[in-house]
Amino acid sequence: MRGDLLDVRELKVVFYTYRGIIKALNGVELWMNHEERLGLIGETGCGKSVTSLSIMGLIEQPGEIISGDVYFEGKSMQKMSMEELHDMRGKKISMIFQEPVSALNPVMRIGFQVAESISRAKDIKIKEAYPEVLKMLELVGLDSKRTASLYPHELSGGMAQRAMIAMALSSNPKLLIADEPTSALDVTIQAQIMELLDELVREMGNAVILITHDMGVAAEFCDKIAVMYAGNVVERASTVDIFEEPLHPYTKGLLKAVPKIGQSKELVGITGTVPDLVNPPTGCRFHPRCPYAMNKCSQKMPPLIEAKPGHHVACYLYTQEGEHNAN
């Protein structure tokens, strides 16, 4: 088994819309171990969020998993009953979102919402959960008594995200999925939240999938990084390898486009646009924008292979066939 906590195998997800069938995930391969921090990076519409929803078992109409499976601690989620799934969500996997204020229930006090998630995680009554609520709110750096009695609209974005983290970690889940947790926040508040998350997760030993489009946030927080493009994981390696020896042309392009303080180099963007997933390009979905594209690239999607120990890439530049073609 590739990852002892999570193994996503050839996951294909489609959404049926009036425009046609959106092929959102095109055989995603993703795996991770306990206590690992995996960064899922990619641009708008690459399928980062759909991947995380699949892991939570939350793909609903008009979406459908058409093939592949998600194994959580070795168990197939496709074969799990509704009760088992229900039990897994919130207890073993929890999630925090980009817009913390809208992810909270606007008509319930923060204390009640945290208590609710604690009571579910520990199978106790909501009233009995209150001492734990104060403890959790304190842990995330909030003034616990005061915050517990507030409504979500009375909190700033940073405070609301702290409250969300308190809810998500109250069950001490095996896996925390953080979907762009700081994208809506200011940079100083982002730094506070990422530091908090780093400390808490280190103490509690949770594995984290951090979904982000910010290469800086991923570089600082994650051990491993998976790069997604148009519904595929195109590269997966340790954070250092991704930043220092990227293999996939898309990853290389992405890194050249990121502005960095104190670097005098010109930025280079990636020409072309992200494909429409109703009519995705054949073969490798990056080939129309790829400077190294070969004939083979438009015919068949390259498999995710281990090009170097621990460094996986889906590109014909690193397969025997590809080298043959290139010459």
């Binding site: 700033s156 508040i189 730094a191 506070q192 570089a219 600082e220 250092v240 930043f243 960095k260």
Partner: peptide, 21 residues
């Protein structure tokens, strides 16, 4: 200091403004 640096080897202890705006 608050800006995340896209370089995994850059791991200095950050000094961040406390509190909210």
């Amino acid at each position: 200091n608050s800006i995340p640096v896209p370089d995994p080897r850059h791991k200095n202890k950050k000094m961040i403004p406390k509190g909210e705006i």
